[in-house]
Design a protein around this nucleic acid. Structure first.
Lengths: 348, 348
DNA sequence: TCCGCCATTGTAAACGTTTCAAATGTTCAT
DNA sequence: ATGAACATTTGAAACGTTTACAATGGCGGA
């Protein structure tokens, strides 16, 4: 096994200097075609492969970006990564991927590692974008970054998101319009997700506004916090789905939770939307395929990933003002939300 | 803005040589505690961050691995990446992620880029693992790699997979046991996926074996090839679901296809499993939550990702024999497969 | 007192690039 | 014939590490 060929090897083979080889690689236009060919032949003959690490060491930019998501297990993040990867590929960027499992410690650790790799910038979905050490770190190190799905209160950071509160508001309102009066939200733990809290706020707001219209029409909003990745909601939802206080509608902070909630309803013999209506937020692809078709506040997840990379590129290229984009969501025409079960007809 | 601190800066601040700084980073035990502390203080004071690119340039190993999947949009791959990422994190490895969209050209391109990054090894899910230029390339460059989900015919490459043919065989047999006689497989295009073909083989085998038992009991196996990422199967499945030749069961080569197929059945007013039974392969999480619960040949996707990384580490550490592991799949107790609709009662 | 040993630290040469400044050769107007 | 202007190429110095080897100094034993 001969040692790996380097520019030096190629240069020797082609009878030129390593500077010329470099130019053939980076700006072949500035080199006479005849020389270019000779060098290219040598490269092919030796199976030369440029070493990105050498290049990165020398150059100011590494042409790599770091990506941090809570988990790949939720299709909404996987899809956004798909969008990022796609856009990165088009620009010839390398993607370094990490996940945090919603753990702030791991977030910090992961970002630190990415910075050690000297990525040109980062795309992050943080558990909690406010009061987050990761953001402080990135700002103090002056590294471009874009938040994805986070909707931070501070305006000096770039972010791409839908309006979380509004998403929840709209889907809640859709339920209220169908006659639902007793609603609960199923949401991930607030400390693990700012989106979860923002969506809960929207949920409450919708109920309050309905009460404003028609005083005390609505029962007080209820909340069921669950762990992320939790798919067995049966026990957790019992007090919400059974007994005299049972709700007629569940607004879920994510589609994954909504699908799990529908499954839980079924174990209690409740039909969706016959007995209980269920709405989600995110718009994951599978939601449109299941029965009943999930009614959700849909966000253009993959596009958002692409857009995030586009923003990041802007920042890397020196654009100084971080932009924030609040994309419109769209209520899908789903079947999982139906007319409220008549109040006086008890379950069974 | 002061320039980024390097080991040299730290060394100066701490009043030691850069070799000592390096030692503090890599083997603090060989340095007296007092010195270690002084250097650590300097690092903290200067906010020093080791530059991985410098290190990688010098060292034989880069402590990074490349990952190539067809797409993140299919949860089965996203979940495996989740497993890989998790295991990589535990070993302090950096993950470089790429996707191919099932395109062999992009596969080659992506792997080439990863090699330019001098990854220590690769984990790949290829469209077609036999007769694949990527594999030839990797072998000729002598780079450790592990195939994930691919089940190559050659035995000199490491791979982690379930038995694709057997998975399809089992799920098909489950349908036959329920009285189904007219079956079709819904599968991704063979040229885009060797798994797709292997699963089709298993499907046919199950039907042949049934005919062996009880001559000509089964109708000839039918095949419906669809594009990957295709979720609207309505038109495509028409000739299989309607008319006198309508099948009573659909074996799908992936769970995503199965979910889409169930959705398509619904648009034809067919109930699952009342009118048509549908089975999948993969075992994505959401399959267990939907109605009807998807009956699938489940593989331990995330574990497989972790296992793939473990294998890869072995190869990187110099283990010469590439191992292949064929994990057992498990038929999930789903509701999407039911007794066959009686032959003589035509649909509507 | 001198020597050798050990623990600790330092020097300098890689690793594979990019890039600036300088060198070489060619062409052309004078 | 001379030198200016230009096209092409080269030499050498980085970039931030690691690491083999050398240097330094303190110490105990002879």
């Amino acid at each position: 096994m001969t040692p790996k060929p380097t520019m030096r090897t190629v240069a020797a083979k082609a009878g030129v200097s390593i500077a010329t080889v470099s130019r053939v690689i980076n700006c072949p236009d500035e080199v006479p075609t005849e020389t270019v060919e000779r060098v290219r032949e040598a490269m092919a003959y030796l199976k030369y492969r440029p070493n990105m690490n050498g290049r990165r060491l020398k150059m100011a930019q590494t042409r790599s970006v770091g990506v941090l998501v809570p988990t790949m297990a939720n299709p909404v993040f996987a899809t956004s990564v798909q969008g990022i990867e796609q856009a990165a590929h088009e620009d010839g960027l390398t993607v370094l991927l990490t996940s945090s499992e919603y753990d702030p410690e791991r977030e910090l650790d992961a970002v630190s590692t990415l910075l050690n790799n000297r990525v040109d910038g980062l795309i992050l979905t943080l558990a909690n974008a406010d009061d987050n050490r990761v953001i402080d770190l990135l700002i103090s190190e002056n590294i471009p970054f874009v938040l994805l799905f986070n909707q931070p209160s501070r305006t000096d950071v770039a972010s791409i998101s839908v309006d979380n509160a509004k998403s929840a508001y709209d889907i809640t309102q859709a339920m209220i319009a169908k006659g639902h009066r007793k609603l609960a939200m199923v949401a991930g733990h607030f400390e693990s997700s700012d989106r979860s809290r923002q969506r809960y706020d929207g949920f409450c707001q919708a109920i309050n506004d309905a009460n404003q219209q028609d005083a005390a029409a609505m029962a007080a909003p209820r909340l069921c916090q669950v762990g992320f990745g939790e798919t067995d909601l049966e026990g957790i939802l019992e007090s919400f789905l059974t007994g005299p206080d049972a709700v007629t509608g569940l607004v879920c902070s994510t589609d994954m939770l909504a699908i799990a909630a529908i499954s839980a309803c079924r174990t209690y013999g409740l039909s969706v939307p016959g007995d209980v209506s269920v709405g989600g937020i995110d718009g994951i692809a599978v939601g449109g395929l299941i029965t009943p078709k999930l009614c959700s506040a849909v966000q253009p997840t993959q596009k958002m990933g692409q857009q995030a990379l586009a923003f990041l590129l802007g920042l890397i290229r020196g654009q100084t003002e971080p932009q924030s984009l609040l994309l419109p969501h769209q209520l899908s025409t789903g079947e999982s939300i139906g007319p409220a079960r008549h109040q006086s007809s008890p379950r069974l």
